[in-house]
Design a protein around this nucleic acid. Structure first.
Ligand SMILES: [Mn+2]
Ligand SMILES: [Mn+2]
Ligand SMILES: [Mn+2]
Ligand SMILES: [Mn+2]
Lengths: 219, 219
DNA sequence: AATAAAATTTAGACAAATCTAAAAATTATT
DNA sequence: AATAATTTTTAGATTTGTCTAAATTTTATT
């Protein structure tokens, strides 16, 4: 079966929300998609009719296993295109999201499998998120929040918690990005800020909020 | 301004039809787009309101210069993506059209300009059609119909007149394709068939219909 | 347990793109 | 010039996805 761009966007958003939350609510999804609760209810009835979500009135919902398969297909396309844009077209990793939002809806399965081969089967996208293979399997994210990294242990930044321009602006200013090696030198209990060090630069302070937005893989 | 996928498809189709015909009619466009005349009339009113076509009831229509600019933008995207699919992803030149029909609607200007650079600014797509540059300029097609090629003059096949599977099947069978060097050895007045030769093969006969579907550049 | 607040769903409308059937205009044929 | 055939447009519906406002259900607070 084939799904509309709108349906795919709903399915993908439900997938991401249920990773965090278990059950997803109407308002949550409306917020995620910048739409209204009434529109979400309408769409959920359609997705339920197509057996893509398990949904009972007023009870919240989650994807069926069929729905999950669709979601992983869209996510695979999104992340492969992001990888292509960064590695082949020289986009910055902070400017690919919008474009991938569109490219993820190109329907050809053959296209995406050939793109995957052309890119040499990458395992992670430019934001450190794992790319599902053509069967929907992907590497487990063995990354931790920077806030949980032990003192004086080097780790590599592999992922960011949001793609907001505000965050990206701050990262650029502090010369932090995917691939940067970082180490925590000191924690301040008062505001949970921390002093960190990246090689070739003197130590500096980052806020709790920023630390929580960064995911790292200890080296 | 931004246009819907449907609007872009209408604009592109009008562009192609008016290349041949000058003025385009409602029925012609309906046939081209596999839709009904009534739908075409509806859309023309919208395109007229947006000043993309010059259209008067019952009088036929053509693109405004603004409309032509949009059309060339879509055609640029279509042909660059086709080139990408063939040169980088190893698609056959006969299997890229459908996919490019979708990719041509991805809106990012930056994407298409970076893709152009990545591909090293190709001048022709895999079917021999010229690719407009980012200003909408493209190489004049200095190609002639095979039917008009003088006897015993070598020429290179640069373009085909249709993308029908029937034609592509026949070309495959006769080992003809874009880039093939061909020469006419004899014409038969009765049915306008002709004996042709390609290097490394003994001469064979092609029909008038096939010759008319092939465009060549004399060498 | 009653009431208030919040979340969710329904009802009714609207815009985009499509269709069928009927009406109107143009073009071709007698 | 009248009539027939063809083309094009209009009228009225339909589908998808959206919205606001009102009604309903659930959850929280007294
Ligand atoms: Mn999307
Ligand atoms: Mn990503
Ligand atoms: Mn298209
Ligand atoms: Mn082409």
């Amino acid at each position: 079966m084939n799904f509309s761009i709108t349906e795919e966007n709903y399915i993908k958003a439900i997938y991401h929300l249920q990773q965090a939350d278990g059950n997803v609510t109407t308002n949550e999804l409306a917020a995620e998609l910048n739409t209204k609760a009434a529109s979400v209810t309408d769409m959920l009835k359609k997705l339920k009719a197509k057996k893509l979500v398990n949904y009972e009135k007023y009870q919240g919902f989650r994807l069926s296993s069929e729905g999950k398969k669709i979601a992983l297909g869209v996510i695979r396309k999104h992340r492969l295109w992001e990888y292509f844009l960064v590695e082949k077209l020289q986009f910055g990793w902070d400017e690919v999201h919008e474009v991938a939002e569109e490219l993820e809806h190109i329907s050809s399965k053959k296209l995406i499998d050939k793109l995957d081969a052309f890119l040499d089967y990458p395992k992670f996208d430019p934001h450190g998120d794992p790319i599902p293979d053509s069967n929907g399997k992907m590497a487990a994210q063995k990354q931790i929040n920077l806030i949980d990294l032990p003192l004086n242990e080097a780790a590599e930044i592999v992922s960011v918690g949001s793609q907001s321009t505000e965050l990206l602006e701050l990262l650029k200013h502090k010369h932090l990005g995917i691939g940067t090696t970082i180490e925590i030198k000191k924690r301040f209990a008062f505001d949970h800020s921390m002093e960190v060090k990246i090689k070739g630069q003197s130590a500096f302070i980052i806020s709790q909020q920023l630390a929580q937005a960064l995911f790292v893989r200890p080296l």
